[in-house]
Design a protein around this nucleic acid. Structure first.
Length: 916
RNA sequence: GCCCGGAUGGUGAAAUCGGUAAACACUGCGGACUUAAAAUCCGCCGCCGCAAGGCUUACGGGUUCAAGUCCCGUUCCGGGCACCA
């Protein structure tokens, strides 16, 4: 056996073994419990980043752990291969998105393999292949048939120079990313999936998802946003030659019908028919509406922008008081929520209050809480409270919130002008994208027949893969061979739809496709019934709402089409935290920042302040300067061609001088690894330098899976050092310890000497803790436990057959607990130390009760809640005996200072607290 | 702005049900080995204090024999906000 730890050799051999034995290829097997472990598939952006490595390491730990516990484990992998970055790369490099994407997949696949994940590669898929996206198209057609998909208008960001639709990401400060032109809102037709039809079920089924984090369920529930309120109409006589607008009714929705008597104005969206009508004769209003068209379609911008409005000069009639109420246009009213109009109750709605103050509109208090006094000076929290009673509200006076809403809803209903209604915040899912690199929407536009679905036998509608977008719109418009098609209905020349599907469609059902036998001409087959649902899903918290909600919706549609029987796709969800790294930059002329990669930066603390610099690129050893200085008592020795001197005083006035080689850079914050901040750490370089096991171990060890992880080069070296020690001990075991073991094992029946028993107990205790933590999916402390085990094993007695047997048992436990984290080294040692052929086939270790027993335990002694000592008592001591021992303890006597003990609390196995 | 999280030593973090705060590491410092360096091994390391002891889990209150953990309020940081994935 090799005495040095050589990760490259060990890892190559282990991976070859897994490959040649097809170790991770699985099929349905009814004799075993199944465990479907799924990590969110990567976008093939070019190279793996640390977020991927973290995600798949967590998944791999779970997969390997369950496999050793006897589960039939499926862990697949694939590629979320359509999307905007491929088009951006095409614009930049003049390479078709398809080529860029497939090249990236090939590269990243080899990177994934080098990390030793237990993946069944026979199930690999890429969403940009026709055999996959055919089924997007097929199910979309079923949705059209069922009325779940429909065509209507959508609001998009329009770049007037490039004449193209922009993604939100491509709008920077209200301007197009390439042209710098002011972006406009524009309405165009597109396809929608009616996720709102499933709102109730998507909300109520959250209760079934016991394996999901509460916060994710809460976020989803808030996103769906069920609110019960009253929808009612203000009547009016505004109309034109086509009759009254909206049949003389302006509908609004409110959750605060109890404040209806406090309405002093109404506000409508800029796109509302009443606003458009008024604008015809009001140039100022027309200009305001035009202004509202520019600006963001994003909710965050809508919510933070200055609330502005303009009166329309139109009036509507309050349905209960009969009073005339002026209608304003407000830039904060969304046409897409409810009916695009709201009632304005400034006394009890914070936004209305600010609006009324700004435009000097009347404010009338109609709710009172206790004896609190209402004032118009500033908004008070209680103005919006539902805990008060109605005042100044005629017949509704003195009613509480619920009673008032009921009474008002009943009166509105009696007048046939309103009713209670459930309103959802959730909007329908617009899936049309005016973009090339996506799944074609299977529709043909015919002048005679309209929008005609592509017949099933003509699927898939294949996307030409050789287009190169140039940023000025969808290149499919110029592809006549794609565009020209005969109408399936009437046979006359027609035109294909050029819009493609949102990439969230692709990722809404890939998990079901992995579980299907490929080749079968079906979207999913019987094998899915065995594997689904996904037992464990792992991915970034940033997907907590959209991707997960769309996947749940898509599953329910597949169920309603009769494809599957389950109603939820993911039983357990683990939301991993982000991978962060420090950022560094140089300030360039004009205030621009040039970001410097952390791998080129050296940092030091000088006089209590942090400094960073980039080592000189061209270190010139021909003219080496050797400099020795003193700073903070430490010697600094550097060789460089360019030097920089940093001087600083710490808070005690001591001056430090440090001479550094290189250019100073500014220290930014610790942020998510990203290209834009140039703070990514390359996993490939790391694997080359230290091996996959070190990389995996560091990632698992350094943070709880759900928490963000801060990158540290020094920490990686610590992980490497640990694995070296594991290997070194394995070598010592093989050469010095194992040879002491006799022909027959005696451990099971032997009475161990105290030191050996204590050591064995420690390992089994650590194992018990590790198993508990694995159950909690807290892998960082499992990694700690393996380090503690090695610390104990290295110090354990190793002379004699019995000691060797205990070490054999304990090191075997360590190797197995380590194997999901660092499978390569575990594989090599398990095999070479004679534990067995393949650690994958070994059973997961369980602690032995016999090894855990102890005679004496230590209890902490507190006096008035403060720690004053400890006492050793027999493990089976009674409460009275413990009390007596505690009161007799010198620490207790000293700190009670002669006072009698008022109360003695004994917490079994932990502590005694004397109150005196 | 709205919704959801988070905050513990010089650093990453641990503390299971309210019961020893800082396990396990990293950095740093001291030492051994070495001609030297690397590697490895041993020791020390929250703050104040000579000590006894006191203080300490972002900040301010509260509940409790006992609070990092529960409750109320505040600040700061992060994620999402529907066309980035």
């Amino acid at each position: 056996m090799q005495d040095k730890y050589l990760p490259a050799d060990i890892e190559r051999a282990a991976q070859q073994h897994w490959d040649s034995s097809e170790a991770f290829r699985v099929t349905a097997d009814a004799s075993k419990p199944k465990y479907y472990c799924l990590s969110m598939f990567p976008y093939p952006s070019g190279k793996l980043h640390m977020g991927h490595v973290r995600n798949y390491t967590i998944g791999d730990v779970l997969s390997r752990f369950h496999r050793m516990r006897g589960y039939n484990v499926l862990q697949p992998m694939g590629w979320d291969a359509f999307g905007l970055p491929a088009e951006n790369a095409a614009i930049k490099n003049k390479v078709p998105p398809a080529k860029w994407t497939y090249d990236n997949i090939a590269y990243m696949k080899q990177q994934l393999k080098s990390l030793g994940f237990a993946i069944d590669w026979s199930r690999e898929l890429a969403t940009c292949t026709p055999e996959y996206y055919k089924w997007n198209q097929w199910l979309f057609l079923r949705m059209l048939e069922k009325g779940v998909a429909e065509r209507k208008t959508q609001v998009v960001n329009w770049d007037p120079v490039d004449q193209t639709v922009l993604a939100n990401e491509q709008v920077i400060d209200g301007r197009g990313w390439r042209t710098g032109a002011l972006v406009e809102k524009r309405e165009i037709p597109g396809y929608y999936l009616k996720i709102t039809d499933y709102a109730d079920e998507l909300l109520s089924d959250l209760d079934e998802l016991e394996g999901w984090p509460e916060r994710v369920k809460l976020m989803q529930a808030n996103w769906i946003g069920k609110s019960t309120g009253v929808r009612f109409a203000f009547s009016h006589t505004v109309g034109d030659e086509n009759g009254l607008i909206g049949d003389g009714k302006m509908w609004v929705f409110t959750t605060r019908a109890d404040t209806i008597m406090g309405v002093t104005f109404c506000a409508v969206a800029a796109e509302h028919p009443l606003a458009l009508h008024a604008a015809k004769s009001n140039p100022e209003l027309a200009a305001f509406i035009e202004k509202c068209k520019h600006g963001s379609v994003m909710e965050a911008d809508m919510a933070t922008m200055e609330k502005e409005g303009l009166p329309t000069g139109l009036f509507v009639t309050h349905p209960l008081t009969g009073q005339q109420v002026e209608v304003w246009v407000g830039n904060y009213v969304l046409m897409s929520y409810g009916d695009g109009a709201v009632m304005g109750v400034p006394a009890h709605d914070e936004r209305d209050f600010a609006f009324a103050k700004k435009y000097s509109l009347p404010i009338e208090q109609v709710v009172a809480v206790g004896d609190k006094a209402y004032s118009l000076d500033a908004w008070q929290e209680w103005y919006g409270s539902k805990d008060g009673v109605c005042i100044n509200s005629g017949k509704y006076d003195d009613l509480g919130y619920a009673a008032a809403v009921d009474a008002i809803a009943a009166d509105l209903a009696a007048k046939n002008t309103g009713e209670k209604k459930v309103q959802w915040r959730l909007r329908d899912w617009g899936i049309s994208r005016q973009r090339y690199w996506g799944c074609p929407i299977p529709i043909i536009h015919c002048d005679a027949c309209g929008s005609v679905p592509v017949p099933d036998d003509q699927l898939p509608v294949v996307l030409p893969e050789d287009c190169v977008p140039d940023g000025s719109g969808n290149p499919l418009h110029k592809r006549l061979d794609f565009l020209h098609v005969d109408c399936p209905k009437c046979g006359k020349p027609a035109r294909r739809e050029t819009d493609t599907m949102d990439t969230f469609v692709d990722s809404s059902w890939y998990y079901a496709r992995y579980a299907t036998k490929f080749g079968a001409d079906k979207m999913v087959d019987e094998e899915t019934d065995y594997w689904m649902t996904v037992d464990q899903y792992i991915g970034g918290i940033e997907h907590a709402i959209l991707h997960l909600l769309y996947s749940r919706f898509w599953t329910k549609v597949m169920r309603d089409v009769g494809l599957v029987t389950y109603r939820e796709p993911f039983a357990h969800l683990l939301t991993q935290g982000m991978v962060l790294a420090p950022t560094y930059f140089r300030e360039l002329e004009g205030g621009k920042k040039e970001w410097v990669n952390p791998s080129n930066v050296t940092e030091s603390v000088i006089g209590g302040k942090r400094y960073a610099w980039v080592q000189n690129d061209g270190l010139d050893f021909g003219e080496t300067n050797l400099v020795e200085g003193r700073g903070n008592q430490s010697k600094i020795r550097i060789s460089a061609s360019k030097l920089d001197v940093i001087r600083d005083d710490d808070e005690h006035g001591k001056q430090s001088v440090v001479i550094v080689a290189g250019d100073r850079v500014q220290i930014g914050g610790v942020e998510k690894m990203s290209k834009s901040k140039n703070n990514g750490v390359d996993p490939e370089a790391l694997v080359k330098q230290f091996g996959a096991d070190t990389c995996r171990f560091f990632i698992i060890f350094t943070a709880h899976p759900e928490q963000s992880l801060e990158w540290s080069d020094a920490g990686v070296e610590g992980a490497y050092r640990f694995l070296k020690r594991v290997w070194t001990f394995g070598h010592a075991f093989a050469t010095d310890i194992r040879p002491q073991i006799g022909a027959t094992r005696t451990l099971a029946s032997a009475k161990l000497p105290d030191a050996l028993a204590a050591f064995r107990r420690e390992i089994h205790l650590l194992l018990k803790q590790a198993n508990y933590d694995l159950g909690k999916q807290q892998f960082n402390t499992v990694a700690s436990a393996t380090m503690k085990m090695l610390n104990a094993i290295e110090k354990a007695p190793r002379e004699g057959a019995l000691a060797a047997e205990v070490i054999e048992e304990c090191f075997g436990i360590l190797l197995r607990v380590l194997s999901p984290l660092t499978p390569h080294i575990s594989h090599a040692l398990w095999n070479q130390l004679g534990y067995g052929n393949d650690i994958l086939a070994a059973a997961w270790p369980e602690p032995l009760e016999a090894a855990l027993v102890q005679d004496e335990i230590e209890l902490m002694l507190q006096v008035n809640g403060k720690l004053r000592g400890s006492l050793r008592v027999p493990a089976d001591a009674t409460k009275d005996a413990i009390e007596a021992a505690a009161l007799a303890h010198e620490g207790a006597i000293k700190f009670l200072e002669g006072r009698p003990a008022k109360k003695v609390i004994v917490v079994p196995g932990r502590l005694v607290n004397i109150a005196g």
